[in-house]
Design a protein around this nucleic acid. Structure first.
Ligand SMILES: [Mn+2]
Ligand SMILES: [Mn+2]
Ligand SMILES: [Zn+2]
Ligand SMILES: [Zn+2]
Lengths: 130, 130
DNA sequence: TATCAGTTTAGAATGATTCTAAAGTGTTGA
DNA sequence: TCAACACTTTAGAATCATTCTAAACTGATA
């Protein structure tokens, strides 16, 4: 709790009640993938009612400070990922199935990068079926 | 034009005026990535005004018949791809830059597929910066 | 050419996300 | 300690891509 406050301060974020609750949930040591909606639901289960606007604000604040990654897997919701290491995903849209691939993956045979551009990140999504 | 009609018929799609125009534009031999909006704009330039509802309907009809691929690269619009071969992409969200990687890419070091699931498709997105 | 299933369309609805602006709160310097 | 203020939260409105509705239209068929 004081660790969380320090953690927030060290990221130039005021430790408000809401941010403390959200950070406490997100950064509890287990990797998580959340959407604004799923986060709201989880917090509500724990009797922490925080407005959706604040949940969106906070996810973005954390993202902008590098505490979360953003995943675009489906067109109709954004996932935030507490695992900020370089990693990839198994994903099944139909089944809402999303898990990390933390093993080192190598992508071979890439053509040369287009002129005047530079690779920012290589993202591998392994789409699964039942 | 009659080729297009035949092409549509052979995919169990009635060759309506609108579908003929859209297919004529999309399947002209050059690979394209379009959104509903960009397609509407391109057709308008060519003096073909087709309602957005029909553009969405048609893109989905074509997609469902395997004539297009769907790409989820950004959370706020869906791209359709006329290149239906297995392939990957260079992408820059900021610059609206999206091009095919047709070269064979190999992804090595994948962990084993989760139990009772099967790999449907492996998608590699190379995110670019300026 | 009549019939009908399939198609198109305007406009309304949806739903995730963002915006607005007013009220609340953490920080800080005196 | 506390006033002052910048930062934050929030309800509710707005946005915007996409989907839906239901009425008019049209391609296929006999
Ligand atoms: Mn993850
Ligand atoms: Mn949406
Ligand atoms: Zn992850
Ligand atoms: Zn492509």
């Amino acid at each position: 709790m004081n660790d969380i406050k320090q953690f927030l301060r060290s990221n130039a974020l005021r430790p408000t009640k809401q941010r403390i609750v959200i950070a406490g949930y997100l950064f509890d040591g287990t990797d998580k993938h959340v959407t604004a909606e799923s986060l709201s639901t989880e917090l509500a289960k724990r009797k922490h009612i925080i407005s959706l606007a604040t949940i969106y604000n906070t996810l973005h604040d954390f993202y902008e400070n590098g505490l979360l990654k953003k995943l675009t897997l489906s067109a109709d919701r954004v996932y935030f990922d507490t695992n900020t290491d370089d990693h990839h995903h198994f994903y099944s849209e139909k089944e809402q199935f999303l898990i990390d691939i933390n093993k080192n993956i190598k992508v071979n045979g890439l053509p040369k990068t287009p002129r005047n551009k530079k690779i920012n990140k290589i993202e591998v999504i392994v789409h699964l079926d039942k």
